[in-house]
Amino acid sequence: MDILVYLRVFAIGGAFCLIGQILINTTKMTSARILVCFLLSGVLLETIGVYKYIRDFGKAGATVPIIGFGANLAKGAIEGTLENGLLGAVSGGIEAVAPGIAAVIFIAFVVGLLATSKTK
């Protein structure tokens, strides 16, 4: 376990959240809009080939934030297209994030069945 790696993870991940907080404070954006903004920036940065440098430097700091989810989608789409042409272009993105989406739907379904909203 390398302390320096963890410091980089902390810095990059924290920086993304910091940008998110600035957006919340100054634009009164709701959480859904913030998520979409970050997601689209991830798609864009991956497409123009910048995000892989951020990922190499920040490790989980770049993959855990939702911006990494966007980058993953774009990465999948690019690889899929290069391998399978048009079909890959359509399915590549969702294939790359399929485990995450399937997990979130299934887990939300189970937890939704079991849990109840708590008194505030």
């Binding site: 919340i24 709701t30 959480s31 849990a115 909203s117 708590k118």
Partner: peptide, 9 residues
């Protein structure tokens, strides 16, 4: 939703 983790302004 009650359990959504957003900050109250």
């Amino acid at each position: 939703p009650l359990e959504l983790g957003n900050q109250r302004t």
